[in-house]
């Protein structure tokens, strides 16, 4: 564990708390893509299958449980508790276009041909593009509530912070995980446009609005 990874994980935790806070205080999941949130459940469940077989640390296990539980809770908030505020008609990104290619990639690139390793690989590839339905929705509506942009910024910062973590681990432990690094770079890259608007507008006190 190093400071970059720890801050990345904290940022990931923060993003989830921000999202839950947004939904509960506004009593609405407007502006949140259900598809993105559903993909996150799939990401956590497929990645943390080792929860019962591999023990890394109490930290690791608790975080895994938290990520699975909180992502399921968010789906519950969206589909049951605040269902009327969820508008599927603007959440139109075709998720099957993400899952298919990721499944093929996972079958080609993995660290071993076992069910758990291929699913782990799938979860890494899927996570890298999971935000696309959300960004697509943002693009389509052209604006976002400020709290939603804080959620996205924290989520983007999480993967961005993993990059210095991998550089650090390469030099300190000789550790390299090419699948995570490649997917992580792609994932961070997807946020660049968003970050630009976030830093130049939202953090200057303006509303998040995309040029028409």
């Amino acid at each position: 564990m190093n400071i970059f990874r720890f801050l990345g994980d904290l940022s990931h935790l923060a993003s989830i708390f921000i999202l839950i806070h947004k939904i509960q205080t506004t009593r609405s999941c407007r502006g949140i893509s259900f598809k993105t949130q559903a993909v996150y459940v799939a990401v956590f469940v497929t990645r943390y299958l080792d929860l019962f077989t591999t023990f890394v640390s109490v930290y690791n296990t608790s975080m895994k449980i938290f990520f699975i539980a909180s992502s399921c809770y968010i789906l519950y908030l969206m589909k049951v508790r605040f269902r009327p505020t969820n508008d599927p008609s603007i959440d139109t990104f075709r998720v099957e276009y993400l899952v298919g290619p990721c499944a093929v990639l996972a079958l080609i690139f993995n660290y071993g041909y076992s069910v758990t390793e291929v699913l782990w690989s799938l979860s890494i590839f899927l996570e890298s593009v999971a935000i696309l339905p959300q960004l697509f929705m943002l693009q389509r509506t052209g604006e976002a509530e400020t709290i939603t942009t804080h959620y996205l910024a924290a989520l983007g910062a999480y993967r961005a912070l993993y990059i210095p973590n991998w550089i650090y681990r390469y030099f300190s432990e000789g550790y390299v995980d090419p699948i995570s690094v490649t997917a992580g770079l792609v994932q961070t890259g997807l946020y660049l446009d968003f970050f630009y608007v976030y830093f130049t507008k939202v953090l200057q006190g303006q509303k998040f609005e995309l040029p028409a």
Binding site: D9, D50, K64, F67, D177, S180
Partner: peptide, 10 residues
């Protein structure tokens, strides 16, 4: 490397 198959990152 990852020969051990243990993924210690989240």
């Amino acid at each position: 490397d990852l020969d051990s198959g243990i993924h210690d990152e989240l």
